[in-house]
Amino acid sequence: MARGSLRVYLGAAPGVGKTYDMLGEGRRRADRGADVVIGFVEDYGRPLTRRMAEGLDTVPRRRITHRGAAFAEMDLDAVLARRPQVALIDELAHTNVPGSRNPKRWQDIEELLQAGIDVISTLNIQHLESLNDVVAHITGVRQRETVPDEVVRHADQIELVDMSAEALRQRMRHGNIYPPEKIDDALRHFFTTGNLSALREIALLWAADRVEEAVLRYRSEHGIEQPWPTRERVLVALSGGPEGDTLIRRGERLAARAAGGDLLAVHVARADGLATAPPERLDRQRALTESLGGTCHTVTSDDPAAAVLDFAQRVNATQIVIGASRRGRLGLLFNRGVGERIIEGSAEDIDVYVVTHEAAAHGRFRRRRSSRGPDTARRDGA
């Protein structure tokens, strides 16, 4: 039996329209002849959402009593018995009431997928497990219901439901999200412009990473070696020499010029385990890279140039930053000739920047083998 597909509507905050869009997709599939049912939808009394659900077959909820109180949960067994082609199931991160077969709704959905049923669900970015601490710092509210990132990343489709902070606040003022008695409090606390803008940026960047992940997987599966630049990704090659701090800062400025650009640093360690650079210096450069929002990596090889090029291809790098000696010759990494070999071996879609150590602090560097423009001298801010 073929596994069902999972589609997730991802939003930055409640009220952006995830459930509405999920129901809209369900209606479109039903109009095309698919057997679509509502497994669980929470409309929170929103009239537009409620009207969008009208006409779709709904599986009745299961009533569960816990500590003397009655709760309504998705009836997993009833949905499985109904065997629709598509099930619409809201709130992927929801925690089921004790007494349910699975602790979490995403586990219920996994059973439906294994049964060959396609599932369409919804999720707010703050419910991703990896972002729990970040969101708590931004909003002052720690989300108790989370879903492992791996579950969402394995979705067949993720659609970002986007809305500006002010548009969402306006929707709140109009009573389209919460009932009137909760509006003022929500606008003063969770739904501030700063909170919503930060959550929106996090959602956009997380979704962009998912696109990058899909590109890398496709390239690997199809044996494609040349990079496909979905966004700028700057790779700094570190020898462990004193020039590394300058190269890292130069790489960060290059990445910052492109919205959402990534900074990575790589050091090539010898295969025999012998140190090629003082460990304390590499530790400092790793800390500097991470403080600038980048990631630091170590690969093992006796061929530094080939190792840097291979790593650049694997991470889909668009730019490589290397160092030149004070005399201007390309001999900075481990021995003379490594820089030249990186330039000669770089793919057509990778720009190689050669930074002179003394001059780099003043913004001078040279770009070699760029396929996106002529080889020209550049200054910081150009």
Rank of each mutant, 00 (worst) to 15 (best):
R7V: 06
Y9W: 05
Y9D: 00
A12H: 12
P14T: 13
G15D: 12
T19I: 08
Y20V: 11
G24Y: 06
G24K: 10
R27H: 11
R27N: 11
R28K: 15
D31P: 00
V41K: 01
R46Q: 10
R50L: 12
R51T: 11
M52C: 08
A53F: 02
T58A: 15
V59G: 08
H66L: 12
R67E: 12
R67Y: 10
G68A: 10
F71Y: 15
A78S: 07
L80I: 05
A87R: 06
L88P: 13
L92V: 04
R101A: 11
P103I: 04
P103S: 02
I109F: 04
L112R: 06
A115H: 06
V119H: 02
V134E: 14
V134G: 03
V141W: 02
V141Q: 07
V141K: 06
R144M: 08
V147E: 09
D149V: 05
V151N: 04
V151M: 06
D156M: 05
D156I: 05
D156S: 13
I158D: 04
E159Y: 02
V161T: 14
M163F: 01
M163D: 04
A165L: 06
L168W: 02
M172Q: 09
P180L: 00
I183G: 03
I183H: 07
G194R: 12
N195L: 09
L196V: 11
L199Q: 09
E201R: 14
A203Y: 05
L204F: 01
L204Q: 11
L204G: 07
L204Y: 01
A208L: 03
R210T: 09
L216T: 03
R217L: 06
R219T: 11
E221N: 08
G223C: 06
I224Q: 11
I224M: 14
W228L: 15
P229S: 09
T230H: 12
V234Q: 00
V236W: 11
G241R: 02
G244K: 06
R250E: 00
E252F: 05
A256W: 00
A256K: 15
A258H: 14
A258E: 13
A258D: 15
D262L: 14
A265L: 08
H267N: 14
L274K: 14
P279F: 04
R284L: 10
T289K: 01
T289A: 15
T289N: 01
T295F: 01
T298Y: 06
V299I: 15
T300A: 13
T300P: 04
A305R: 08
A306T: 11
A307S: 10
V308N: 13
Q313Y: 02
N316C: 08
I322P: 12
L330V: 05
G337Y: 08
E344P: 02
A347F: 03
E348S: 12
I350M: 07
V352A: 06
V354C: 13
V354L: 07
H357S: 10
A361G: 12
R378S: 03
A382V: 04
